[in-house]
Design a protein around this nucleic acid. Sequence first.
DNA 1: GGACGGTGAAACTTCAGGTTGCCTC
DNA 2: GAAGTTTCACCGTCC
Length: 518
Amino acid sequence: MASIKIDDEFDSAVLNIALDTIKLGKQALVFANTKKSAEKTAEEISKKIKTDDEKLSLLSEGALNTLSRPTKQCERLALCLKKGIAFHHAGLVEKQRRLIEENFRSGVIKIICSTPTLAYGVDLPAYRSILKDLRRYTLHGLTWIPVLDYMQMSGRAGRPNYDKEGQAIAIAATNSEKEKIEEKYIDGTPEEIYSKLAVEPVLRTYVLSLIAANFTTTKKQLFDFFDKTFYAYQFKDLRKLHSTLNKVIDLLEEWELIMSSADDFASANELEDEKFKATLIGKRVAELYIDPLTANFIITCLRNASDKKINDFSFLQMLSHTLEIRPLLRVGIREYDRIQESLLEFSDFLLENEPSMYEPEYEEFLNSVKTAMMFYQWISEQDEEFLLEEFNIRPGELRTKLDIADWLLYATEEICKILHYQSLIKEIIKLRLRLKYGIKEELLPLIRLENIGRVRARILFRNRIRDIKDVKNTDLATLSQLLGEKVALSVKKQLGQEQLEVPENKRKGQISLRDWGE
DNA sequence: GGACGGTGAAACTTCAGGTTGCCTC
DNA sequence: GAAGTTTCACCGTCC
């Protein structure tokens, strides 16, 4: 291992190495422990850089104005980008991430400070890979990360077509840490790869799909199939595997997602020959690829919905309590009372039975309530900055959650169809749209128009243009003042009212969307 | 004497990421 | 474990 000499101008090693990399005219990825740490490191580096580049200013502007109103996160990113530095993690919106990745590839951005996102998903090699901290917080406290993770991150060093070499640098705070790192990571061997198949949620899903696809119809076939999997090969404890499978089958039967076929009743004495087939709903659940446990939970909630008062919160809390939506927003100690208080307001509308305060699952339940409240604020037209402050959820994380929520609601819609809950379907479709756009119900007619989202729809509504008919009756000039000429024209065109341009004298005094806030 | 404001130390909190489905005029 | 945030005691100033 060749040793390299780097100026230690500042007392932060990461900072020194990053600046040295830039001096060499190369690029580096810095891997941090947490999102906060990634952001802070990027900020620190950017503060030491003096540059004033046209390209970077443009890039910075682009990142700043990705959302309808910039959040603190956007502002922070924009400041870093001005200096050719970026941070990158799941809290960023897709568009910002793409912007950063592309500009790093083209060499405009010199340093990206990221959480492990970049080590896995995207292919972004750099001359140097700087690993700021090889420990990570887990349930067991601060622990050393797996060797495989270390390899993923350090493996980003060296760009095959550009550099002859690459450098992966792990930072050690003390001498004993240095020894530990050498022993565990540099000289060590990666962990065995363990099959995740045996985790019950995965097993549930697989067993149901195998049966639904008629791939395996008897217990014997199922056992045979799983006996040949990597999991079975690894653990060799087939009895335990079979007992877990039996448990899963029993549950699926109890949930009425599968049933043993009656026509084969005679031979069913032979337990292992018992034949199974998926029920109608079981088939659909398998196609939708949701966890059977979630499917059962949704079905139970829908049954309760028929003799209960329901509102938007009912469904939001339902989907906030599924495995798929996790991780949930956590209720902090300080918020505990506040969340409980607002729960009182909604508890009549819950579709599931509220657990008692003294049961262990109460905490998770309360988390689901907080998550549901976050969704509720979103469809009450609170923006990303509000949600960031109030719920500590970043724009990127919000988008991911909204996506999953939409998928779950789609699945709920499909389950409703099979169970003939026609009246609920309408509500669910409305809720899906409201989640997608982040709007109150009153804006639903307007967002059907292309180029009209939550912001523009609200502007129209505030100006007494409340549905398609109103839009049709509004002249192009007025519409242009509210939406801008291009959007107004496009809207009119969608309504079959084509007009070529706005009269010249009305063009002045156009109200920009940004100035229209309250 | 009391209200207020600034300060710093101590106590407390929080902490990565991501795959699935379907489509819509 | 470490960084960021909140809480709280303490002190000085002003009215």
